[in-house]
Computed example of a mutant assay.
Amino acid sequence: MNTPQKAIALGIGAALIQALMLIAFAWPAANTAPRDLPLAVTGPQAAMVTQKLNQAVPGGFEITRPADEAAARTAIADREVYGAIVTGDGAPRVLVASGASPAVAQQLSAMAQQLSGARPAAVEDVIAADADDPRGAAFGAMVLPLVMAGIAGGVLLSLLVPSVSGRLIGLVGFGVVGGLLSMAIIQGWMSIIPGPYPILAAVAGLVSFAVAGTIVGLATVIGQPGIGLGALTMLLIGNPFSAATTAPEMLPQPWGAIGQFLPPGAAASLLRSVAFFDGAAATQPLMILLAWAALALILLGVGFLTSRGRTPASATTVSAEPVPA
Protein backbone atom coordinates (compact mmCIF):
# COMPACT_ATOMS: atom_id res chain seq x y z
CA MET A 1 0.00 0.00 0.00
CA ASN A 2 1.56 3.29 -1.10
CA THR A 3 1.44 6.53 0.89
CA PRO A 4 -1.73 8.04 -0.70
CA GLN A 5 -3.62 4.77 -0.23
CA LYS A 6 -2.47 4.53 3.38
CA ALA A 7 -3.55 8.12 4.01
CA ILE A 8 -7.00 7.47 2.53
CA ALA A 9 -7.40 4.28 4.57
CA LEU A 10 -6.42 6.06 7.78
CA GLY A 11 -8.83 8.91 7.05
CA ILE A 12 -11.71 6.52 6.42
CA GLY A 13 -10.85 4.55 9.55
CA ALA A 14 -10.82 7.72 11.66
CA ALA A 15 -14.20 8.74 10.20
CA LEU A 16 -15.66 5.34 11.07
CA ILE A 17 -14.40 5.61 14.64
CA GLN A 18 -15.91 9.08 14.85
CA ALA A 19 -19.26 7.74 13.63
CA LEU A 20 -19.15 4.90 16.17
CA MET A 21 -18.41 7.34 18.98
CA LEU A 22 -21.35 9.55 17.96
CA ILE A 23 -23.66 6.54 17.96
CA ALA A 24 -22.32 5.18 21.23
CA PHE A 25 -22.62 8.44 23.15
CA ALA A 26 -25.59 10.20 21.50
CA TRP A 27 -27.93 7.26 20.87
CA PRO A 28 -28.39 6.27 24.54
CA ALA A 29 -28.94 9.89 25.55
CA ALA A 30 -31.55 10.36 22.83
CA ASN A 31 -33.44 7.21 23.83
CA THR A 32 -33.57 7.55 27.60
CA ALA A 33 -36.87 6.19 28.95
CA PRO A 34 -37.97 3.73 31.65
CA ARG A 35 -37.83 0.08 30.59
CA ASP A 36 -38.97 -2.35 33.29
CA LEU A 37 -37.80 0.13 35.91
CA PRO A 38 -38.31 -1.41 39.38
CA LEU A 39 -40.98 0.55 41.26
CA ALA A 40 -43.06 -0.17 44.36
CA VAL A 41 -46.73 0.78 44.69
CA THR A 42 -48.58 0.25 47.95
CA GLY A 43 -51.75 1.30 49.72
CA PRO A 44 -55.51 1.04 49.10
CA GLN A 45 -55.36 2.46 45.57
CA ALA A 46 -52.29 0.47 44.52
CA ALA A 47 -54.18 -1.48 41.84
CA MET A 48 -55.61 1.69 40.29
CA VAL A 49 -52.23 3.45 40.28
CA THR A 50 -50.56 0.39 38.78
CA GLN A 51 -53.12 0.34 35.98
CA LYS A 52 -52.59 4.04 35.26
CA LEU A 53 -48.82 3.59 35.15
CA ASN A 54 -49.07 0.67 32.75
CA GLN A 55 -51.37 2.66 30.50
CA ALA A 56 -49.24 5.80 30.59
CA VAL A 57 -45.91 4.03 30.02
CA PRO A 58 -46.46 0.50 28.65
CA GLY A 59 -43.58 -1.73 29.67
CA GLY A 60 -41.95 1.13 31.50
CA PHE A 61 -42.15 -0.21 35.04
CA GLU A 62 -41.65 -3.50 36.83
CA ILE A 63 -44.10 -2.90 39.66
CA THR A 64 -44.03 -4.70 42.98
CA ARG A 65 -46.70 -4.46 45.66
CA PRO A 66 -45.14 -4.36 49.13
CA ALA A 67 -47.42 -4.77 52.13
CA ASP A 68 -47.10 -1.22 53.42
CA GLU A 69 -45.02 1.95 53.35
CA ALA A 70 -42.40 0.53 55.70
CA ALA A 71 -41.82 -2.41 53.37
CA ALA A 72 -41.57 0.00 50.44
CA ARG A 73 -38.92 2.04 52.26
CA THR A 74 -36.97 -1.12 52.98
CA ALA A 75 -37.09 -2.09 49.31
CA ILE A 76 -35.67 1.32 48.38
CA ALA A 77 -32.89 1.06 50.97
CA ASP A 78 -31.98 -2.42 49.68
CA ARG A 79 -31.83 -1.10 46.09
CA GLU A 80 -34.61 -3.44 45.01
CA VAL A 81 -36.65 -0.51 43.63
CA TYR A 82 -35.85 3.06 42.62
CA GLY A 83 -38.85 4.55 44.38
CA ALA A 84 -42.36 3.98 45.65
CA ILE A 85 -45.83 5.44 45.30
CA VAL A 86 -47.83 5.31 48.53
CA THR A 87 -51.58 5.65 48.19
CA GLY A 88 -54.17 6.35 50.85
CA ASP A 89 -56.27 9.31 51.89
CA GLY A 90 -55.64 12.25 49.60
CA ALA A 91 -53.11 12.48 46.81
CA PRO A 92 -50.49 9.74 46.39
CA ARG A 93 -47.19 10.30 48.13
CA VAL A 94 -43.97 9.53 46.31
CA LEU A 95 -40.79 8.16 47.83
CA VAL A 96 -37.69 8.63 45.69
CA ALA A 97 -33.97 7.97 46.09
CA SER A 98 -31.85 10.50 44.25
CA GLY A 99 -28.81 8.66 45.64
CA ALA A 100 -29.71 5.78 43.33
CA SER A 101 -30.41 8.00 40.34
CA PRO A 102 -31.30 11.72 40.35
CA ALA A 103 -32.71 11.36 36.82
CA VAL A 104 -35.11 8.62 37.88
CA ALA A 105 -36.08 10.56 41.01
CA GLN A 106 -36.98 13.59 38.91
CA GLN A 107 -39.01 11.51 36.48
CA LEU A 108 -40.94 9.76 39.25
CA SER A 109 -41.66 13.11 40.88
CA ALA A 110 -43.02 14.55 37.63
CA MET A 111 -45.11 11.45 36.97
CA ALA A 112 -46.61 11.61 40.46
CA GLN A 113 -47.84 15.12 39.78
CA GLN A 114 -49.68 13.84 36.71
CA LEU A 115 -51.24 10.99 38.67
CA SER A 116 -52.39 13.20 41.53
CA GLY A 117 -54.42 15.52 39.31
CA ALA A 118 -55.14 18.97 40.69
CA ARG A 119 -53.64 18.31 44.10
CA PRO A 120 -49.84 18.32 44.22
CA ALA A 121 -48.26 15.07 45.32
CA ALA A 122 -45.88 15.09 48.25
CA VAL A 123 -42.39 13.86 47.31
CA GLU A 124 -39.90 12.60 49.88
CA ASP A 125 -36.29 11.90 48.97
CA VAL A 126 -35.59 9.05 51.38
CA ILE A 127 -31.97 8.49 50.26
CA ALA A 128 -30.75 11.77 48.85
CA ALA A 129 -27.76 12.45 46.64
CA ASP A 130 -24.89 14.44 48.10
CA ALA A 131 -25.87 18.01 48.93
CA ASP A 132 -22.93 19.30 46.87
CA ASP A 133 -24.10 17.30 43.85
CA PRO A 134 -27.91 17.14 44.10
CA ARG A 135 -28.47 16.41 40.39
CA GLY A 136 -25.74 13.81 40.16
CA ALA A 137 -23.94 15.60 37.34
CA ALA A 138 -20.54 15.44 39.01
CA PHE A 139 -21.03 11.78 39.92
CA GLY A 140 -21.78 10.92 36.30
CA ALA A 141 -18.81 12.95 35.10
CA MET A 142 -16.56 11.13 37.57
CA VAL A 143 -16.79 7.78 35.73
CA LEU A 144 -15.29 8.96 32.42
CA PRO A 145 -12.00 10.22 33.95
CA LEU A 146 -11.60 6.92 35.81
CA VAL A 147 -12.05 5.02 32.55
CA MET A 148 -9.85 7.34 30.50
CA ALA A 149 -7.09 7.26 33.12
CA GLY A 150 -7.28 3.47 33.15
CA ILE A 151 -7.01 3.36 29.38
CA ALA A 152 -4.06 5.77 29.41
CA GLY A 153 -2.31 3.79 32.14
CA GLY A 154 -2.83 0.55 30.27
CA VAL A 155 -1.51 1.99 27.00
CA LEU A 156 1.59 3.49 28.64
CA LEU A 157 2.44 0.29 30.51
CA SER A 158 1.93 -1.77 27.36
CA LEU A 159 4.17 0.41 25.22
CA LEU A 160 6.90 1.42 27.68
CA VAL A 161 7.33 -1.60 29.96
CA PRO A 162 8.50 -4.70 28.08
CA SER A 163 8.48 -7.28 30.87
CA VAL A 164 5.32 -8.92 32.20
CA SER A 165 6.47 -8.63 35.80
CA GLY A 166 7.17 -4.93 35.34
CA ARG A 167 3.72 -4.41 33.88
CA LEU A 168 2.13 -6.16 36.85
CA ILE A 169 4.08 -4.01 39.31
CA GLY A 170 2.98 -0.92 37.40
CA LEU A 171 -0.67 -2.03 37.46
CA VAL A 172 -0.63 -2.58 41.21
CA GLY A 173 1.01 0.79 41.81
CA PHE A 174 -1.46 2.50 39.50
CA GLY A 175 -4.43 0.89 41.23
CA VAL A 176 -3.29 1.72 44.77
CA VAL A 177 -2.12 5.28 44.17
CA GLY A 178 -4.88 6.04 41.67
CA GLY A 179 -7.61 4.87 44.05
CA LEU A 180 -6.28 6.82 47.02
CA LEU A 181 -5.65 10.00 45.04
CA SER A 182 -8.88 9.98 43.03
CA MET A 183 -11.08 9.56 46.09
CA ALA A 184 -9.08 12.17 47.99
CA ILE A 185 -10.05 14.59 45.21
CA ILE A 186 -13.62 13.39 44.67
CA GLN A 187 -14.60 13.04 48.32
CA GLY A 188 -12.16 15.15 50.27
CA TRP A 189 -11.85 18.19 48.01
CA MET A 190 -14.98 18.21 45.82
CA SER A 191 -17.24 16.44 48.34
CA ILE A 192 -19.25 14.75 45.59
CA ILE A 193 -20.08 11.52 47.41
CA PRO A 194 -20.36 10.47 51.06
CA GLY A 195 -19.30 7.15 52.51
CA PRO A 196 -16.17 5.56 54.01
CA TYR A 197 -13.06 6.84 52.27
CA PRO A 198 -10.98 3.61 52.51
CA ILE A 199 -13.70 1.51 50.86
CA LEU A 200 -14.39 4.09 48.15
CA ALA A 201 -10.66 4.37 47.44
CA ALA A 202 -10.44 0.59 47.22
CA VAL A 203 -13.31 0.56 44.71
CA ALA A 204 -11.67 3.28 42.61
CA GLY A 205 -8.37 1.39 42.73
CA LEU A 206 -10.07 -1.82 41.64
CA VAL A 207 -11.68 0.01 38.72
CA SER A 208 -8.32 1.45 37.67
CA PHE A 209 -6.66 -1.97 37.88
CA ALA A 210 -9.48 -3.69 35.96
CA VAL A 211 -9.53 -1.19 33.08
CA ALA A 212 -5.77 -0.79 32.73
CA GLY A 213 -5.15 -4.48 33.42
CA THR A 214 -7.48 -5.60 30.66
CA ILE A 215 -5.62 -3.48 28.12
CA VAL A 216 -2.20 -4.57 29.39
CA GLY A 217 -3.26 -8.22 29.44
CA LEU A 218 -4.62 -8.13 25.90
CA ALA A 219 -1.49 -6.34 24.69
CA THR A 220 0.68 -8.95 26.41
CA VAL A 221 -1.11 -11.83 24.70
CA ILE A 222 -1.93 -10.51 21.21
CA GLY A 223 0.32 -7.46 20.90
CA GLN A 224 -0.60 -3.91 19.96
CA PRO A 225 -4.04 -4.85 18.49
CA GLY A 226 -4.98 -5.75 22.06
CA ILE A 227 -4.48 -2.14 23.08
CA GLY A 228 -7.04 -0.95 20.55
CA LEU A 229 -9.48 -3.76 21.37
CA GLY A 230 -9.39 -3.08 25.09
CA ALA A 231 -9.56 0.70 24.74
CA LEU A 232 -12.48 0.65 22.30
CA THR A 233 -14.41 -1.80 24.48
CA MET A 234 -14.07 0.38 27.56
CA LEU A 235 -14.63 3.68 25.76
CA LEU A 236 -17.26 2.91 23.10
CA ILE A 237 -19.33 0.32 24.97
CA GLY A 238 -18.45 0.50 28.64
CA ASN A 239 -18.65 4.24 29.21
CA PRO A 240 -21.79 5.33 27.29
CA PHE A 241 -23.75 2.34 28.59
CA SER A 242 -22.51 2.61 32.17
CA ALA A 243 -25.74 4.41 33.19
CA ALA A 244 -23.71 6.57 35.56
CA THR A 245 -26.01 9.55 34.98
CA THR A 246 -29.32 7.66 34.72
CA ALA A 247 -30.03 3.98 35.45
CA PRO A 248 -29.50 0.78 33.44
CA GLU A 249 -33.28 0.43 33.04
CA MET A 250 -33.42 3.88 31.40
CA LEU A 251 -31.14 2.89 28.50
CA PRO A 252 -32.00 0.97 25.31
CA GLN A 253 -31.94 -2.74 25.98
CA PRO A 254 -30.04 -5.00 26.03
CA TRP A 255 -27.26 -2.37 26.08
CA GLY A 256 -28.21 -1.05 29.49
CA ALA A 257 -27.84 -4.53 30.96
CA ILE A 258 -24.66 -5.27 29.00
CA GLY A 259 -23.09 -2.07 30.29
CA GLN A 260 -23.38 -3.36 33.86
CA PHE A 261 -21.09 -6.27 33.02
CA LEU A 262 -18.27 -3.94 31.95
CA PRO A 263 -16.01 -2.08 34.42
CA PRO A 264 -17.50 1.42 33.96
CA GLY A 265 -21.07 0.31 34.64
CA ALA A 266 -20.09 -1.95 37.51
CA ALA A 267 -18.01 0.88 38.97
CA ALA A 268 -20.92 3.33 38.93
CA SER A 269 -23.26 0.81 40.59
CA LEU A 270 -20.71 -0.21 43.22
CA LEU A 271 -19.81 3.37 44.10
CA ARG A 272 -23.51 4.23 44.56
CA SER A 273 -24.06 1.18 46.75
CA VAL A 274 -21.10 2.02 48.99
CA ALA A 275 -21.66 5.77 49.12
CA PHE A 276 -25.43 5.98 49.59
CA PHE A 277 -26.81 2.55 50.55
CA ASP A 278 -24.32 1.12 53.08
CA GLY A 279 -23.25 -1.55 50.61
CA ALA A 280 -26.71 -2.80 49.61
CA ALA A 281 -26.72 -4.58 46.21
CA ALA A 282 -22.93 -4.31 46.04
CA THR A 283 -22.23 -7.99 45.48
CA GLN A 284 -22.87 -8.21 41.74
CA PRO A 285 -20.86 -5.14 40.63
CA LEU A 286 -18.03 -6.13 42.99
CA MET A 287 -17.89 -9.64 41.51
CA ILE A 288 -17.88 -8.19 37.99
CA LEU A 289 -14.94 -5.90 38.74
CA LEU A 290 -13.06 -8.74 40.43
CA ALA A 291 -13.71 -10.93 37.40
CA TRP A 292 -12.19 -8.32 35.08
CA ALA A 293 -9.20 -7.95 37.40
CA ALA A 294 -8.81 -11.74 37.42
CA LEU A 295 -9.03 -11.80 33.62
CA ALA A 296 -6.20 -9.27 33.48
CA LEU A 297 -4.05 -11.45 35.75
CA ILE A 298 -4.82 -14.54 33.66
CA LEU A 299 -3.85 -12.76 30.45
CA LEU A 300 -0.62 -11.56 32.03
CA GLY A 301 0.07 -15.10 33.20
CA VAL A 302 -0.49 -16.47 29.71
CA GLY A 303 1.78 -13.82 28.27
CA PHE A 304 4.46 -14.60 30.85
CA LEU A 305 4.38 -18.34 30.12
CA THR A 306 4.40 -17.69 26.38
CA SER A 307 7.41 -15.39 26.64
CA ARG A 308 9.33 -17.97 28.72
CA GLY A 309 8.60 -20.61 26.10
CA ARG A 310 10.15 -18.57 23.33
CA THR A 311 13.77 -19.41 22.59
CA PRO A 312 15.90 -16.44 21.65
CA ALA A 313 17.21 -16.64 18.09
CA SER A 314 20.81 -16.18 19.24
CA ALA A 315 20.55 -19.26 21.43
CA THR A 316 19.52 -21.46 18.51
CA THR A 317 22.38 -20.35 16.28
CA VAL A 318 25.14 -22.97 16.25
CA SER A 319 28.58 -21.94 15.09
CA ALA A 320 29.72 -23.94 12.03
CA GLU A 321 33.40 -23.23 12.70
CA PRO A 322 35.37 -25.61 14.91
CA VAL A 323 36.58 -24.35 18.23
CA PRO A 324 40.35 -23.78 18.07
CA ALA A 325 42.45 -26.05 20.30
Rank of each mutant, 00 (worst) to 15 (best):
A47P: 00
A47M: 03
M48H: 09
V49R: 00
T50E: 11
T50D: 13
N54L: 04
N54R: 14
Q55G: 15
Q55T: 15
A56E: 05
P58E: 09
G60P: 13
F61G: 07
E62R: 15
E62W: 00
E62N: 14
T64V: 15
P66W: 05
A67T: 14
D68L: 09
A71D: 10
T74I: 10
D78I: 02
R79K: 09
R79A: 01
E80C: 01
E80S: 12
V81D: 06
Y82D: 10
A84G: 01
I85A: 00
V86A: 06
V86M: 03
V86L: 12
V86F: 08
T87W: 11
G88M: 07
G88P: 04
G88C: 02
D89G: 14
G90Q: 07
A91S: 13
P92K: 02
R93T: 12
V96H: 08
V96E: 08
A97V: 00
A100Y: 04
A100F: 02
S101P: 12
S101R: 12
S101Y: 11
P102N: 04
P102F: 04
A103V: 13
V104D: 05
A105K: 03
L108I: 10
L108S: 05
S109V: 10
S109K: 10
S109W: 03
M111N: 01
Q113N: 06
S116A: 15
S116F: 11
G117N: 01
G117R: 01
A118K: 15
A118S: 15
R119V: 14
A121S: 12
A121Q: 02
A122H: 02
V123T: 14
D125F: 08
D125G: 13
V126H: 03
V126C: 01
I127D: 06
A128R: 08
D130Y: 03
D132T: 15
D133N: 05
P134N: 12
P134S: 13
